[in-house]
Amino acid sequence: MAEALSWHREFTGDMTGLVEACGWIEELSSGHGLSDDISNAIQVCFEELASNVVRHSGDGLWKDPTVDDAESKTALVLKVALSIDDRKAELRLEDNGKPFDVAAAPSHGVDQPVADMAVGGLGLHLVKTLSTAVDYRRTAYGNEVKLEFSRVAMQEPH
């Protein structure tokens, strides 16, 4: 079995940090033996999740009313991790924004004529379609989303 690889990094939860994070994920997912299919899926899913956080959690960070830690929750931060082994790639995104359960949130593909088409929910549909597993949990820090991309299920030779 080849050695498992993992990386993690933090980014500011603003547009600058988002663009930087997307570039980092692009570079990692393109350069470590993953198929083009999985690399593409990781990039599409990451951009959707991270941009949702930056666009929708920026106004007023979620604060647990039972915890007196206002000082530590003054800026939105994205914590990003990617790990790759023989069987799968796993993308983890943590943020300290307001609660948002990606796995439970409604999503839909396009099922209407263009004139009636709703754009909201399309991105989450892509995340759920392009990954092989989506896991969400609320942690003391905030939201944690893990996406799995199976190198076996996605029929990647390795």
Partner: peptide, 30 residues
């Protein structure tokens, strides 16, 4: 474009782009 009675179509997406379009179901509408 459709709201004015016009039409917009897509041409020749690369394989990875085509996969995203079809995974979203956009090919059912455009």
């Amino acid at each position: 474009v459709a709201a004015k009675g016009g039409d917009l179509v897509l041409l020749n997406p690369q394989a990875n782009v085509d996969k995203v379009l079809k995974s979203s179901g956009i090919d059912q509408a455009i």
